[in-house]
Simulated scan of single mutants.
Amino acid sequence: MLLRWNSLVALGDSFTEGMDDPGPGDTYLGWADRLASMIAQNAPGFRYANFAIRGKMLQEIIDEQVPLAISLKPDLVTFCGGGNDILVPNSDPDALAEVYEVAVADLRAAGCDVVIFTGFDTRSTPLLRSLRGKVAIYNAHLWSIAERYHCRMVDLWSMHVLHDRRAWSADRLHLSPEGHQRVALKAAEVLGLTNDQAWSEPWPALVHTDWVTQRKADLKWAREHVVPWIGRQLRGESMGDGLVPKRPELLPFALCAEES
């Protein structure tokens, strides 16, 4: 099956960079690299770049990554942002969506097909359940944007398989390798790629954990991941400070893999 897309640029934050899906060397693999590999199998000469950097806020993604993508004129762009903004107290999902829409309009005006992503349903994550309302409002806007600009949508909210803790890494904010694979398969489905694997395949039965063990795990998680995150926010720091994109050039996918 030959596809009409011969190039892909991925834009975003840690989700698109691929945390916590270890790749070659000190890099991360992630759903975007996995998706690019799937497309490359059906598109000879396929080129790929990934500008995503962990910790980026939506406006930073738009200012730093969107113009670069437009200048390269790729056939396909994946654009996911706003998750870090939603985590900030008093952030406004309506205002975020207005900013997001301008970027989508610019990408579409440049002739790129665009894939966008809803936010995850946070109901299964302690401390983040209170954000469900904001995420839902933001998602509603994103669906409207997708319709207005004829974008393809990867609906992460509806992916119930991601409510399993095995889909997430120890910090409960980033996907595990299996979680990234599920998202890659979902994105591939949205693009019309056929695959022997199914993103919705049920997980094997999970061994039950008693209440005390679960609470100890929650406390450990809060101490090791939540408290440091709050500290960075208070200091105005980001995990991505000083980092550069892992795939900053639109290169044939085979060369991307060799340089990793």
Results as ranks from 00 to 15, higher is better:
residue 2 L to Y: 11
residue 5 W to Q: 08
residue 8 L to T: 06
residue 11 L to E: 07
residue 15 F to C: 02
residue 16 T to Y: 06
residue 20 D to R: 12
residue 22 P to Q: 15
residue 25 G to H: 11
residue 29 L to K: 08
residue 30 G to F: 04
residue 30 G to A: 13
residue 31 W to M: 06
residue 33 D to N: 15
residue 33 D to C: 10
residue 37 S to I: 08
residue 42 N to Y: 03
residue 42 N to L: 15
residue 42 N to T: 13
residue 45 G to W: 09
residue 45 G to C: 03
residue 48 Y to Q: 05
residue 51 F to W: 08
residue 51 F to E: 01
residue 52 A to M: 01
residue 52 A to Q: 01
residue 56 K to M: 04
residue 58 L to F: 01
residue 60 E to V: 08
residue 61 I to C: 04
residue 65 Q to F: 06
residue 66 V to A: 02
residue 70 I to C: 04
residue 71 S to P: 04
residue 72 L to S: 12
residue 73 K to G: 12
residue 75 D to A: 10
residue 75 D to G: 13
residue 84 N to C: 00
residue 85 D to V: 04
residue 87 L to N: 02
residue 87 L to I: 02
residue 87 L to D: 00
residue 90 N to S: 10
residue 91 S to R: 06
residue 92 D to H: 06
residue 99 V to F: 00
residue 101 E to I: 02
residue 104 V to E: 05
residue 107 L to N: 07
residue 107 L to V: 13
residue 108 R to T: 09
residue 113 D to R: 11
residue 115 V to K: 06
residue 115 V to W: 11
residue 122 T to N: 07
residue 122 T to H: 03
residue 126 P to S: 02
residue 129 R to G: 12
residue 130 S to F: 07
residue 132 R to W: 02
residue 140 A to V: 15
residue 142 L to I: 14
residue 144 S to Y: 00
residue 149 Y to G: 07
residue 150 H to A: 14
residue 150 H to K: 11
residue 152 R to K: 14
residue 152 R to W: 09
residue 153 M to C: 03
residue 154 V to D: 00
residue 160 H to D: 10
residue 161 V to G: 12
residue 162 L to E: 09
residue 165 R to A: 09
residue 166 R to P: 04
residue 168 W to S: 05
residue 168 W to A: 01
residue 173 L to V: 09
residue 176 S to G: 05
residue 176 S to K: 06
residue 178 E to V: 11
residue 181 Q to Y: 07
residue 182 R to N: 07
residue 184 A to V: 12
residue 184 A to N: 10
residue 185 L to T: 10
residue 188 A to V: 08
residue 189 E to W: 03
residue 189 E to H: 08
residue 191 L to Y: 05
residue 193 L to R: 09
residue 195 N to G: 12
residue 196 D to C: 05
residue 201 E to F: 08
residue 205 A to W: 00
residue 205 A to F: 06
residue 207 V to C: 09
residue 208 H to Y: 12
residue 209 T to V: 15
residue 212 V to T: 15
residue 213 T to W: 11
residue 214 Q to A: 15
residue 214 Q to C: 09
residue 214 Q to D: 15
residue 214 Q to E: 14
residue 215 R to Q: 15
residue 215 R to G: 04
residue 215 R to H: 14
residue 217 A to F: 11
residue 222 A to F: 08
residue 224 E to Y: 11
residue 224 E to P: 07
residue 227 V to R: 09
residue 228 P to R: 05
residue 231 G to E: 15
residue 236 G to Y: 14
residue 236 G to N: 13
residue 239 M to T: 14
residue 240 G to V: 08
residue 246 K to N: 13
residue 249 E to H: 15
residue 252 P to C: 07
residue 255 L to P: 04
residue 255 L to Y: 13
residue 257 A to C: 13
residue 259 E to R: 15
residue 259 E to F: 14
residue 260 S to Y: 02
